[in-house]
Nucleic acid binder design. Structure first.
Lengths: 224, 224
DNA sequence: CCATAAAAATGATTGCGGCTCATTTATAAT
DNA sequence: ATTATAAATGAGCCGCAATCATTTTTATGG
């Protein structure tokens, strides 16, 4: 059966990836021995090289998988119907918690970005991950909850930059998750709301309100 | 002369450090060959190990020196008599410019932090460097230019986190220094000023309405 | 100026670990 | 059952960090 064969190959690849994730996490990139990874995956050392060209590609695969899982988790952590601020808060909390929990792998990420000492392109799955933020922010701008006068990439750098630095601070101090970091960041983001003062921007945005009202109406009619 | 002797030794150490800085910068940590570093410093390979225990300690020395120079530069870049906001702006500009100029070495820093795969302590000179920010911020709080209700470390993480992420973005996009990043960050920091007066609630404000609607929406989706 | 001890420098050698490749084993095709 | 192809193996190769026995330089004293 060609199908079972394919499954066996995929299972082997998965075993190698899992072993590599564990060993990289425990021993770091330099400390990780290919022989040890092979042993844990229950394959010969040469077999690893049938699936991954070299140690660096294996590292990239591990990191890429990590961020793919993180993307899934982030999407799951965000309440579908909530407003933009709420979603941002959820994403921030999820992100900070993940960075703390998997600090080792996160640190390893910077290693994977390097291509023989030159900062190569972003890994595709990291690009995918930041789009989660972009999507929320874009919706915020569309709904006039946030103003459009700052480029999204700059806001994104504030968001992820702050959270990454904060995570490092918390881990080095051996503190855990600190909700005040999230509160602080969310308070900063108030800055991005349209100014409430008497500009032409204070005009009533009836379409956004009608959209929200009809969503509420729908929900009300769904739940007796 | 014991004095000349000492100078000769220091000159040798300096030559090795300079060679290492160059080679690490060009080839990255893994690409750098100890033989090449020795060759450029015009010493035998074994001699390098008289001054630095191993490759990792040499890397640490390179990174430490870089941040020490950066600290000097930062202090020089700040106008003594200026007000706190002005100084913050100067520090931010200097920092962003430096991160872009020496992106390679900055990326290598994360490597030096690692002690056989475990995130060790901060390097002493990096601690020194962040104190430049802390000193300015503390003065701002003392002078009541900034309010004291957010922990300095959190504000520091926003500052450095944002700038480091922005620098990476700019370098990867092959753009150079972008003043709007600084403007944006400084505008964010307005948030930390003590609030002067209560806001005016009488004006019609669609975003406030939207907020209220969103709260209702959230509550409805929570209670079926 | 030479003798001698100590310090510094050298580079051939070693050991480790990533990676290769000739060989073996498993699977598919006829 | 036979052959062809794909997959897996692990002993050995090779590059490089690190060592250390030897050589060279410098300091000291008579």
């Amino acid at each position: 059966m060609a199908d079972t064969q394919r499954q066996r190959l995929e299972a082997r690849e998965e075993a190698i990836l899992a072993a590599a994730t564990a060993v990289f996490g425990e021993s770091g990139v330099d400390g990780a021995r290919m022989a040890e990874i092979a042993r844990r995956a229950d394959v010969a050392e040469g077999t690893v090289y049938l699936y991954y060209k070299n140690k660096h590609e294996l590292l990239e695969a591990v990191v890429d998988r990590f961020w793919r899982e993180l993307t899934k988790g982030a999407i799951a952590a965000i309440s579908e119907g909530a407003n933009v601020s709420q979603q941002l808060q959820e994403l921030a909390s999820y992100h900070l918690q993940s960075l703390i929990d998997d600090f080792k792998i996160v640190e390893i990420t910077s290693r994977a970005r390097m291509r023989h000492g030159v900062p190569g392109r972003q890994l595709p799955q990291i690009r995918e991950y930041v789009r989660v933020f972009d999507a929320i922010m874009q919706r915020g701008i569309d709904l006039r909850e946030f103003s459009a006068d700052t480029a999204i990439w700059q806001i994104r750098d504030v968001f992820y930059g702050t959270l990454e630095h904060s995570a490092r601070t918390l881990v080095l101090r051996e503190q855990g998750f600190d909700p005040s970091v999230i509160d602080h960041l969310m308070r900063l983001f108030e800055q991005y709301r349209p100014s409430k003062q008497s500009d032409d921007t204070s005009t009533l945005d009836s379409s956004a309100i009608m959209e929200a009202l009809s969503r509420i109406e729908t929900k009300l009619s769904q739940s007796p």
